[in-house]
Amino acid sequence: MWNLEGNTVLIKKSGELGESDVTPYEIYRQRRTFLQSGIAVAGAALTGSLWAPAASAAISLGDVRPGPFSTDEAKTDRKDILTYNNFYEFGVSKSDPAKHAHRMKTDPWSVDVIGECAKPGTYTLEDILAPHAMEERIYRLRCVEGWSMVIPWIGFPLADLIKRFEPGSKAKYVEFETLYDKKQMPGQRRRILDWPYREGLRMDEAMNPLTLMAVGLYGKVLPNQNGAPLRLVVPWKYGFKSIKSIVKIRFRETQPTSSWMEAGPREYGFYSNVNPNVPHPRWSQKRERRIGEFRKRKTLMFNGYSEQVAAMYAGMDLKKFF
């Protein structure tokens, strides 16, 4: 089994990815297909500095190997992934997180593990990451607002992490919490949502091989605005389920109430699976605009991951359990 107590950092310090097969970001920079404008992307000069916040992270990714379930669809421009974010802790505008997330300190970082498990405790980020091999997984991400991206994440299966805490038979759900600190997260000064941001999964969803704990994207450590240093990626659910900057994991018997469920119980359900047949009161959900594309495309059931996840919801009325 895993040795969690007081182990030293085992992450290889090999740093550069070099000849490995994962996505070095330069290669994938694509121009928007619908704008052949001769004027260069004004923001190109910005791209270097956008990664700067991640410099504070203590972790290095080590060797990253290609993982399963990756799509071969065109990846979203790295600059768009770094500048178009919903992370209300840093402001409600999509451009706010890239501007303000540098205030968040990700080193040192620790995660409280509590609730129905045999190994609760406070784990440092290094503890959390030590035993896991890093994989790159290229996933679709579908936002409830009707846009989508294709993102090359780096991380490891959440299931592997959860097993280390030895959840008991009463652990039917897992709840996650984002950092709550008004000094580092200026958006939390106003109660737009019931802070700290909370999300949850049913245990089988958490243990599904698709579910990823991400620590990087495009070959580098996560930038702060994308949820550094540790975030969830649940690609068959709307983006807000993929909670960022996690500081607490709680195993529980009853279904948790997420921040968005609290904010709008009729609009945001616990499951929030991507489903083109169940409209949100404000968005039809039948289609989506892939960032960088002009025309909209059809939204796929479970965001195209039916093969991996549909069985978990067999017999459930997905209109009722939205």
Partner: peptide, 12 residues
Amino acid sequence: FYADRLGANPID
């Protein structure tokens, strides 16, 4: 729009 200065989702 023409100069691609509207960010990631210009139509929005």
